[in-house]
Design a protein around this nucleic acid. Structure first.
Length: 576
DNA sequence: ACAGCCAAAA
């Protein structure tokens, strides 16, 4: 027995496992040593071996599998590419003679989180209450986490509220859950509550959730405070935390400070550190710096991965470095990289924006995989910019086939027709939109004034200063018109906007936020706005004019990148 | 003595 356990410790491949198993079988002891078979199962079900077919076969050879045997398989399946199988095994187990324990529930719940299986999670929830595990803090945390990950933040909050005692992991799970679930303000509020009410000291996991919330909100003040705390609490010994700090500064509009944090790291950099910084430069349109860093990472012994290439390509795209981008893309194969659909998407965007539509299309045709919705949207956007009707129609057909119901796709196609005075076709697209009940993602934006985050949705009238904001917008309109501004009215948008007039062009959330910034900050202070979608043509023009007429620097972070408006010009050089 | 919370991506 002792000898067997020694052998077991040395098993590091499936061959070894098989040899040991064969040995046990030949001496007729296979069924006799549960502790050995448990270890064997755990070895082959988990990394680095991870051979689940073999694990399940081995399991089926057992005459009376114990709870721990079951758990080994459920755990392995939960971490595998088919987490739903873990749930199936859990269900089979709960019907078998063997008792499910708290760990089985925990593994099955994690599987639900990965498979985004809400109803299964709820079933396991009610079962674990019946089994009497309802007071297990670890299990409750898992439960909270599953609900948050499947998007049921209300349920997660309820699990949290009902906990009589909460340790730091419970708070961390909810802070992270809210941040990941697009409720960054709530995440930050909870983060504050944690220290104030419970006197808990945020750890490296807590600050990750909080920093992510700041990144989303563009909450520089909050981010700075958390950064100070991180340094004081010596949490900056964790690479993962440093990476999140870099990302936070970059997304709050301060690449320089992101780079400063990158340079002054007290711990070693990893692949993600480099990727985050390259992406940061890309977002800010600093193409050359991004490419320099991409070169430098290789020299520092960190091998670029698919994300590094994507970030560098993205940098070329935002900076208009067409030749560099194409060269980089073509160099991928030579470096043993297989471009994925995102790399193709970026290079198609790069060529499309430069007006090289035919080349872009050639690349689409050469792709070894099916183009996705985003890629066709990219091509459609470029076709609109350059007025290529055939290409636009082709992209639209593909979008319809892929079941895309985004409002933007229809609007773009209709704009192409409108530009060619093909009004019958414009009408046809309009009809199709009505028939299909196209979806419109609501636009919203944030602005931080004196450390307070203000949120605006399109056509928002709920802000306390709503009156002043709207009169400021009227004033802006007058002044920019005097400069020759003509609204970039969009026929289709106007047409479908009839029902909700609030969504009209002139009250886009970024305009509201900038107007609020103008009335609530001192002259000369830069105004920074964060938006969830891409900035529209009209807003882009208006921002440029405001920056000139009001002599204000305006920084807008949209879904894709930063736009820095100054003296009537934008840092993207209208290339976006 | 097999559990929970964890950074980047067109």
């Amino acid at each position: 027995m002792a000898k067997l356990e020694l052998l077991l410790q040395k098993c590091d491949s499936l061959t070894h496992i098989k040899q040991l198993q064969a040995h046990l079988l030949t001496i007729g002891r296979f069924q006799l040593y549960p502790s050995i078979t448990i270890k064997l199962l755990e070895l082959c079900a988990l990394p680095p071996i991870t051979n689940l077919p073999y694990a399940t076969t081995l399991f089926h050879q057992l005459q009376s599998p114990s709870t721990r045997h079951w758990n080994a398989v459920v755990r392995g399946l939960a971490q595998s590419l088919q987490p739903t199988q873990a749930v199936t095994w859990y269900a089979t187990m709960s019907r078998s003679s063997q008792k499910v324990d708290a760990l089985t529930c925990s593994f099955a719940l994690k599987a639900c989180a990965r498979a985004l299986a809400l109803s299964e999670a709820m079933q396991i929830h009610s079962q674990l209450l019946r089994f009497g595990f309802g007071r297990d803090v670890l299990l409750r945390t898992t439960l909270l986490d599953v609900y948050a990950k499947v998007g049921k933040l209300g349920f997660a909050q309820k699990v949290f509220d009902e906990m009589p005692e909460r340790d730091i992991a419970c708070w961390n799970a909810l802070v992270a859950g809210l941040a990941q679930g697009s409720q960054p303000s709530e995440a930050l509020a909870l983060f504050e509550r944690m220290a104030e009410e419970e006197g808990l000291k945020p750890n490296e996991v807590t600050v990750l959730g909080a920093l992510s919330a700041c990144s989303q909100l563009g909450a520089l003040r909050g981010g700075e405070r958390i950064h100070t705390y991180i340094v004081n609490a010596k949490l900056d010994t964790h690479v993962i935390v440093c990476n999140a700090v870099i990302d936070m500064y970059a997304k709050c509009g301060f690449v320089d400070r992101a780079y400063e944090a990158f340079e002054n790291m007290r711990c070693g950099k990893n692949l993600i550190t480099w990727n985050t910084m390259i992406m940061a430069f890309a977002m800010h349109g600093d193409g050359c710096k991004a490419l320099e860093l991409f070169e430098k990472m290789g020299k520092n012994g960190v091998c670029p991965d698919a994300v590094s290439y994507l970030a560098a390509l993205c940098a070329c795209n935002h900076a208009g470095l067409v030749e560099d981008g194409v060269k980089l893309f073509n160099s991928m194969a030579g470096s043993g990289m297989v471009p994925n659909v995102k790399h193709y998407g970026t290079v198609v965007d790069l060529l499309g924006r430069a007006g090289r539509l035919q080349e872009a299309y050639e690349i689409v045709k050469s792709m070894p995989m099916f183009p996705d919705v985003v890629l066709w949207q990219t091509l459609l956007g470029a076709s609109k910019t350059y007025g290529n009707v055939e290409m636009a129609e082709m992209a639209s057909r593909n979008l319809v086939e892929l079941g895309s119901e985004g409002c933007g796709d229809f609007v773009l196609l209709s704009n192409v027709y409108a530009a060619h005075n093909r009004w019958d076709d414009v009408g046809r697209v309009r009809e199709a939109m009505k028939r299909r009940d196209v979806k419109k993602i609501p636009g919203f934006g944030y602005i931080e004034v004196e450390g307070v985050i203000h949120k605006f949705v399109n056509g928002d009238q709920n802000h306390v200063n709503s009156h002043e904001i709207y009169s400021k917008l009227d004033e802006i309109k007058c002044r920019i018109k005097a400069y020759g501004y003509v609204a970039k009215t969009n026929h289709v948008l106007h047409d479908i906007g009839e029902e909700d007039k609030e969504n009209a062009l002139s009250y886009h959330c970024e305009k509201l936020a900038v107007a609020f910034g103008l009335i609530s900050t001192d002259e000369g202070t830069p105004i920074q706005v964060i938006k969830n979608l891409r900035i529209c043509d009209d807003c882009h023009v208006v921002m440029k004019l405001i920056s000139e007429i009001y002599n204000r620097e305006i920084i807008v972070r949209d879904r894709a990148r930063f736009h820095r408006f100054q003296d009537g010009l934008c840092s993207c050089r209208d290339y976006w």
